[in-house]
Design a protein around this nucleic acid. Structure first.
Length: 453
RNA sequence: GGCGCGAUAGCAAAGCGGUUAUGCCGUGGCCUGCAAAGCCAUUUAGGCCGGUUCGACUCCGGCUCGCGCCUCCA
């Protein structure tokens, strides 16, 4: 039985879907005006893992992850580049898709874009005005009246009176209350805009997720996820919008993944301490990054450093070493195996991938000892549940990069000949030559094999 | 100022009121021409102060330190 830590209640709860066998999950995705960094990688990988586990658990799943393709930063960047927001956002959507693919992130079932859901947003804003939750200000903007919604603050544990609106940022003077947030922004020069009952303009950020989740998953669905930094105000505002519009609870379970940090500080655009996925991919296999992310529990902070990625690489290599030279033909997990049960218990306990990975290492140890086909298959198949270990082991361990221009096989052959002639000095010289370029040789009963350091 | 989270061995990171987490690193052994890989064994823990308990890293309280949110952010 799956248990999920629910941000709404701040405790683990047994997961019960609304429809018995069909789970609906919405995750806040990216604002596409730049390349994704490791923080974005974490959201994608974590919820990909959640989606995979829900499906492995036998649920049908509709997984929606939105794309924010219109907002202040996108408009600003497009203007700087002297291009349309459509061209800009498509370029970064393509880049995001490529990054996600390399990280083994399966495509969500639906990836709705804000710009193709303007009508649904306008409709929702209209309902909110009708119901008295929103008002049109003198400047043409439409705002949500936060104090009209009783449950405001229930997700983030904040009280409207304790919030310090305006302390760090200037308050919009057209608002009735400093806490109110914008639903519709009236058009300004050089900005894309859409017609609406309140004049031409564009949507505020929060309304898109309420409109798109409502359209694709319904007013009431199972899981809503995203990064911890979206808990307030974004998700709080989504709840205010959706629940006021539909008069029912929006999502039963709210999940938030922890930050990626650099030197114990949150990795973020504003701090400038971010590493893009593609930068890191220049040095590390994508699977190492995925492994690094899933090695920690999704709610824990995750410190990024070269040392930690190196460590992840070595650890992952240990798993692949156990899979080297074997072919797995059976792809179904044998869930009656004690280690599989342990893995399942870990995953059912709020997606404890750290513990699940400990199972993989124990299986690797068993496999190294008994070479049993069952053990090896289980290791590979449980790895698949996490989106890991699906490369050919030699392909992973031999990688690409330094030494690719060397004729490794010829050198290995020369070394074997030297060994046969008991010319160990020459054999060792050849081995050292390869070691110097990062190629390690291993003599096994099946012959000499090699891998990258 | 308000609200929240965390503190585990050299590094990373989990579970657990009493019994080996796991990976890397270190040490000893087996294996090897020597290595590597692997296997076996093994050294390093639970911020500080109290409390509950037969027994606490694990529960409760306080303190210290770190981090986050209260502004756009995954």
């Amino acid at each position: 039985m799956l248990n999920i830590f629910n941000t709404l209640t701040r405790q683990k709860e047994t997961f019960t879907p609304i429809k018995a066998n069909h789970v609906r999950m919405y995750v806040c995705g990216m604002t596409v005006y730049d390349y994704c960094h490791l923080g974005h990688a974490r959201v994608m990988v974590v919820f990909d893992m959640v989606a995979r586990w829900l499906r492995a658990s036998g649920y049908a799943l509709t997984y929606v992850r939105n794309i924010t393709d219109v907002d202040d930063k996108i408009i600003q960047r497009a203007n700087e580049n002297n291009e349309s927001i459509t061209v800009l956002t498509q370029r970064f959507i393509d880049a995001m898709d490529e990054d996600a693919m390399r990280l083994g992130v399966l495509r969500p079932d639906i990836e709705p874009r804000a710009t193709t859901h303007i009508h649904a947003m306008i409709e929702m804003i209209g309902k909110l005005i009708e119901k008295g939750y929103a008002y049109c200000a003198d400047n043409g903007d439409v705002f949500y009246a936060v104090r009209r919604f009783n449950g405001y603050g229930k997700l983030s544990g904040k009280s409207v009176d304790d919030l310090r609106a305006g302390e760090r940022v200037e308050v919009d003077t057209f608002k009735n209350d400093p806490m109110d947030f914008v639903l519709w922004k009236s058009v300004k020069p050089n900005e894309p805009n859409w017609d609406s009952p309140w004049g031409p303009g564009r949507p505020g950020w929060h309304i898109e997720c309420s409109a798109m989740s409502g359209q694709h998953l319904g007013a009431h669905f199972d899981i809503h996820g995203g990064g911890q930094d979206l808990q307030f105000p974004h998700h709080e505002n989504e709840i205010a919008q959706s629940e006021a519009t539909h008069g029912c609870q929006m999502a039963n379970y709210w999940m938030h993944n922890g930050f990626v940090r650099v030197d114990d500080e949150k990795m973020s655009k504003s701090l400038g301490n971010f590493f893009t996925i593609r930068t890191v991919l220049e040095q590390y296999d994508a699977e190492v990054i995925r492994f690094f992310i899933l090695r920690a529990h999704y709610r824990s902070p995750l410190n990024y450093s070269h040392q930690h990625l190196d460590d992840a690489k070595v650890a992952l290599t240990r798993l692949y070493t156990a899979l080297r030279g074997v072919t797995v033909t059976e792809h179904a997990v044998d869930w009656s195996h004690p280690q599989a049960l342990r893995f399942k218990a870990a995953m059912d306990d709020d997606f404890n991938t750290a513990e699940a990975m400990a199972v993989l290492f124990d299986l690797a140890n068993e496999a190294n000892k008994d070479k049993s086909a069952n053990t090896i298959a289980l290791l590979k198949n449980l790895g698949a549940v996490l989106g890991l270990l699906q490369q050919d082991a030699d392909a992973f361990m031999q990688g690409k990069g330094v030494g690719d221009d060397l004729d490794i096989q010829a050198l290995i052959k020369a070394r074997i000949e030297a060994k046969s002639a008991k010319n160990f000095a020459e054999a060792d010289r050849i081995r050292a030559e390869l070691t110097d370029v990062g190629i390690l040789l291993e003599d096994t009963p099946q012959g000499t094999i090699w891998r990258k350091a």
